[in-house]
Structures are given as C-alpha cells and as structure tokens.
C-alpha cells in the first residue's frame, strides 16, 4: 500500500504530517462506499467461497464439510467442461466476430459513407447497428426465441411457405442450437464495437493519413500502418469488456435455450444458477461460480498486462 505514497516527491516533515492529517479528514467520505462494498460484495464473495467447501442443499439444511471435494468433482463433470467449452463459442460470438465485423463497418461508415454520402447517413446507420444494444437483453431474447420457434416462429413459417418441408428446429436441436445462439449474440453485440471504433477513428489525426497519401500509400496500407495502431487503446477496451461479458453471459441463454438441448448451449453462469436454484446443490454451484471468477480475473489481468506492455512499447518507440 505504501509504495503508492512513497512515489510522491518527498516533502518537508511538517508539511507532510499536516498533509496526512488532512488526508485522514477525507476518510469519512470513503467510509459509506467501503462499508457498502464490504457488505454487498466482499462478505458475500467470502461466503460463497465458504459454501463451495461444503455440501449444502440450501436454506435451513445443514452444511456438511466437503473440503475441496466440489472442485475435484468438477474436474470429472462432463457438463462443467461442456459449459466452459461453450464459453469459447461465446467469446467467438461476442468478441472475435463483433470486433472484426465492427471494425469493418466502422471504417466503412467513417471512411467511405461518412465522406461520400455525408455524416448523417453514417450516423443513422450507426444508430441502427447500435439499436439491439439498448434493449434489455432478456427482451431481445424473448423476441428471438419466438422468431426461431420450430412450430410457430417467423423463420420456420416462412421456410414452410417457400416449400421447405422440414425446417430445422433452430434452438431445439443439438446440432443447431449453439450456432443459432451465437448468431443472435452477434446481432446483439455488433453495435458496441461499431460505436467505439467510430469515435476512435475520429480521434486519429488526419495529417497522418495525408502524409501517408503523399508517400503513395494505398487504402489498405494506410489502414494497416496508421488506423490499426492508432485505435489500439479502443481495441483493448473492447476486447476486455466483451470477453468479460462473454464469460459472464447469462440472460440470453436463460431466455433462448436454458442451456439445452442436452447441455449443448450450457454456459458456466447458467450451470451455476442451475445448481443453486434448481438442483439445490448450493456448494457445487458456488464452486462453479468461483472457478468462473478466477478465470475471468485471469483473462482480464492478461489483457490488461498486454495493454500496458503495448502502451509502454509505444512510449519507448517514440
């Protein structure tokens, strides 16, 4: 803790003591936040770790000590591994595809449409892409659940109309459920990188492009040599926030498939919820949630370290 303070330039002793007394005066302002944080986040988190070391049916049932048993059980649990494998699919659908597609759309809007058809066209299109982002995700999910319903859903009614005898049971069959959920997630997610990348592109100094143009660099060359490095901070932010969101995803799974069929769309957060409230295996659910937490923090730290390193390299290169 004190390392942070030591970094400050040394001050004469009298001033220093008066300043630290002054700093103490600010503590009352921090107190409500710290107390609330402790009660709502730290204590429940600690309790969750405690639960995960027990077998417990929840409520008034007795807690039975189980040590690390829940965690070793997880290792042998096929569904647990399925849920984390599906997390990779979630990352593909919520991070990789939206970021690449979002970058493509943002540069198209900014570079071509904004300049050739006017900023209004670009901003209307941007707002359209962003629309699914503002909806409660559960509401969007309920809508898609109906659209994709095998019997009465819009897609299959339409397919039957044009003569497809046996349209797929999109969300109800093990072959199609995961890809279908992924498509819905891409639809939900795409607007976020578009908006952030567009504001990033506005930040880039146009003189850089002019200089490159004078050197005869083509569009693709400029895109790779100027745009990509310049918007790196935003790319990191998108990667970080979307990866965390993809690992945590719950709402869309709950309203679209409830993890089914046959666990083909099961994700860790839903699996933990299932154990807490459906199977009454509270200790086991707590263990899943803890593993998920460790994974999220690991991934977040890795991304933040990469970001810091890339920023430092840039600083050194200058």
């Amino acid at each position: 803790m004190s390392t942070v303070e030591r970094a400050a330039p040394p001050a004469p002793p009298r001033r220093r003591s008066s300043r630290s007394r002054q700093r103490l005066g600010y503590l009352p302002y921090l107190l409500p936040g710290l107390i609330a944080f402790t009660v709502v986040i730290l204590i429940p988190f600690a309790m969750n770790i405690w639960y995960s070391l027990h077998k417990w049916k929840g409520g008034n049932a007795p807690l039975r000590w189980y040590g690390l048993g829940n965690y070793t059980d997880l290792l042998a649990d096929e569904q647990f591994w399925t849920s984390f494998r599906n997390s990779i699919a979630m990352i593909l659908a919520m991070v990789v595809v939206p970021t690449l597609l979002g970058l493509l759309l943002a540069t198209t809007l900014f570079d071509v449409l904004g300049k050739r058809f006017g900023p209004r066209v670009a901003s209307v299109l941007r707002a359209t892409y962003y629309l699914p982002q503002i909806l409660p995700v559960a509401v969007a999910g309920v809508l898609w659940n109906w659209i994709l319903n095998s019997q009465t859903g819009a897609v299959n009614v339409l397919l039957r109309e044009i003569g497809v005898a046996n349209p797929p049971n999109w969300l109800g069959s093990t072959d199609t459920a995961l890809p279908t959920v992924m498509l819905v997630l891409i639809w939900i997610q795409i607007g976020y990188p578009v908006v952030i990348f567009m504001s990033a592109l506005q930040r880039v100094d146009p003189e850089l492009y002019e200089a490159a143009e004078l050197d005869g660099a083509g569009w693709w060359h400029r895109f790779r040599a100027i745009t990509i490095p310049q918007i790196k901070p935003e790319t990191f932010v998108i990667t970080l926030t979307c990866t965390v969101a993809a690992l945590k995803v719950f709402g869309p799974i709950y309203v679209l498939t409830r993890g089914g069929p046959e666990s083909s769309t099961l994700v860790p957060s839903y699996y933990s919820y299932l154990n807490f409230f459906d199977k009454s295996k509270v200790g086991y659910g707590a263990a899943i949630a803890n593993v998920l937490t460790v994974l999220i923090i690991l991934v977040a730290v890795v991304i933040m370290v990469l970001q810091a390193r890339s920023a430092r390299r840039e600083e050194a290169g200058r």
């Binding site: 803790m1 004190s2 942070v4 303070e5 630290s20 002054q22 700093r23 005066g25 600010y26 503590l27 302002y29 921090l30 710290l34 944080f37 709502v40 986040i41 204590i43 429940p44 988190f45 309790m47 969750n48 639960y51 929840g58 965390v244 690992l247 945590k248 719950f250 860790p268 957060s269 933990s272 919820y273 807490f276 509270v282 659910g285 707590a286 899943i288 949630a289 803890n290 998920l292 937490t293 999220i296 923090i297 977040a300």
Partner: peptide
Amino acid sequence: GRVRGRMWIVTLFLLANMLPQEVLVYP
C-alpha cells in the same frame, strides 16, 4: 483527498465490477 492505498481500492472496485453475479447471488 488522495487517501492512502487508493490505487488498491480503485483496483478492487474495478475487479468487483468484473465478478460474475453468480458468485454473490446466493449469499
């Protein structure tokens, strides 16, 4: 106020924001 240990507190808050809610919900 630049309260002592502020870097730690801010980092803690930021990490808390990344926690999956499942880890808090039962308690």
